[in-house]
Design a protein around this nucleic acid. Structure first.
Lengths: 339, 339
DNA sequence: TGCAATGCCCAAAGCGCTTTCAATTCTGGT
DNA sequence: ACCAGAATTGAAAGCGCTTTGGGCATTGCA
């Protein structure tokens, strides 16, 4: 059933039927009701391809997700972020076009989306300290929103969590507990969030007169194995750290495992603070938080990011939106006074 | 730049330009080369909205992912599955339309995709033993492929792993090591894969004259917390199991944690076998597999599923494809003789 | 040389909507 | 009874592409 047939069956023009269904005012209430009833009865659904061509809007938002490096790893937090954003898209009538490509192919993916007209805007995730995507998208004139931000955080919309403050705060918390040798198990520091977290960590140490020790810091893609490996190395040396600051729960699980294998008890012999994105399948909250953590829901971020992006698409010339979310510090059972 | 302008700039008709770019034979090689060069120079990209309307094909595949139950959990294996499928889609020129909805809203999502014409086919993941989606999609006449299968596995395409055999094999492996009290920490048994795994487990036990003990079996959404809780309960009772068979690495991490908290050493005091979907961020292989596991890459499955689905879209009347993959049993450090 | 078969290209008709512009009918005010 | 203006409705022109149905040269064959 298409519009023409529906119109014919009602003895009306396509124009009127289209207007009635799209809520235009110049249709009498009586006809509108008749049209709506008929549409429902016939289970009429406007053809989205035709509508998109006619309106020039794609009613679609693009997410380009890159997998990193040799491991081809897909960051698992994307699933929860997408779930949050997807909720809002569905509510607002937008589709979500997902493109998972290797890092090097991202630029082509964006260019294609822009030239193609298959999306009205794109979501940018996991920005690097210097990220070519920002400039590219500005040049392409495609509305976009960055979850996170780059060093240069001026001329575009972003939503970020206060990574620096979160990690400074977490470090201070450990310092207050008497820890002096605190390790940082960070994500890749080319990523903006990781660079900020490191700065927060270093600032807190320096403020107490402790010089950051490069030997206590590592940075890599945040898998469980990486957490395990990095912690094992540190714990097996002389002068091992008494506390770990870890950038993701997944890596923190590896760190915990390394500690346990060495007979160390969490919260007594060793302390761990992790950043917790509140992933649904790694609930840190189950029976009281296992890990002390800086916490901020990635899913909630996804929701809000979608809202801001849609707002931008509707009003491309509105002033830029910058939203900075504080992470909360949740005290769990993985921290305690320095031994 | 659109087709008309490009054609005008070349002094050719739209027809010829369109044919030249789409590889139709009735264009002279000379003109084809001229057209291709001009298109490249002008960075011409056909408008996908117009093309879709004209061809009637959406060149898009829909994935409807449901989140389950109260926790609103998004199964993390979807990210890797999508990455695999996405590779193939990109290669074949298809887009991936992702819809993440609450379970109850899935039917509407499918109906809309079908009525709307926004996709050429859909991928169905995580089927239940009886899954209404199969019948719905058959009725809607939308090409689809099921990753997994249902009890009724006849009239549709699917790709599945041999869940029953994998878990029978794993159980036999534990029995051969002398274990007699083996716990099953399964996924929700309304899900087809979990039901089959349970049958494999029970078959293996019965074949050795051991009656399956309901007290040793549990089934739930496979989070880390669930694994921890279930294992803790079993270990704290009298007559605790000496081995665990776990349906996902994430839950297995919880099980391991519970064991360790009780001073048990993996592979000596307690054995764990898990199913490993080879998630990129939970590499079980890092420095020799930590867990003994039945293993099958979800990403490889995603790739193959995409291929089969696209094949189906191209040839809707081809005979049904059923592909059953064996999972391999990888022996790691988490299993040993019964104490 | 004549005629059918190719080869190559074009005009125009869709695809199924939205939207502009115009026409018609109804009002209310005079 | 007459007319401006509001209220409704329709015809038709796109949106930018693909594809059908020719048309005109050129070639191959008798």
């Amino acid at each position: 059933m298409n519009l023409r047939e529906l119109a014919a069956s009602l003895g009306l023009s396509q124009t009127t039927v289209s207007r009635a269904l799209n809520g235009y005012p110049e249709v009498s209430t009586e006809t509108r009701l008749r049209v709506e009833a008929a549409a429902r009865a016939a289970n009429y659904q406007p053809n989205s391809r035709a509508r998109r061509l006619a309106t020039g809007r794609a009613m679609t938002i693009g997410h380009v997700i890159t997998h990193t490096g040799e491991t081809e790893m897909v960051n698992p937090i994307f699933a929860d972020f997408l779930a949050g954003a997807g909720e809002v898209y569905a509510r607002e009538g937008y589709d979500l076009l997902l493109s998972i490509v290797h890092e090097g192919a991202a630029e082509r993916a964006y260019r294609q989306m822009a030239a193609n007209g298959s999306v009205d805007g794109v979501m940018v995730q996991g920005p690097r300290v210097e990220d070519p995507r920002i400039g590219l998208l500005q040049e392409l004139g495609l509305p976009f929103l960055v979850h996170g931000r780059t060093g240069e955080s001026g001329g575009y919309n972003w939503l970020d969590i206060a990574n620096l403050r979160a990690f400074r705060r977490a470090t201070e918390f450990l310092l207050d507990l008497g820890h002096r040798r605190i390790a940082l198990i960070n994500g890749q520091e080319a990523m903006d969030f990781a660079a900020r977290r490191r700065r927060g960590y270093e600032e807190a140490l320096r403020a107490r007169g402790i010089a950051p020790d490069p030997a206590l810091m590592s940075a890599d893609v945040m898998t469980e194995g990486y957490g395990h490996r990095a912690a094992a190395n540190l714990l097996d040396r002389g002068n091992a750290p008494t506390a770990f600051l870890v950038s993701s729960v997944i890596s923190a699980i590896g760190v915990r495992q390394a500690a346990i294998e060495r007979g160390l008890q969490l919260g007594r012999d060793i302390s761990i603070i992790t950043h917790d994105d509140v992933l649904s399948y790694l609930n840190n909250d189950a029976e009281g938080p296992a890990f002390t953590a800086t916490r901020s829901s990635i899913r909630a971020a996804g929701r809000r990011c979608a809202e801001i992006l849609i707002e931008r698409i509707k009003h491309p010339n509105a002033p830029f939106v910058h939203e900075l979310w504080e992470a909360e510090l949740m005290v769990g059972r993985s921290t305690g006074p320095a031994p």
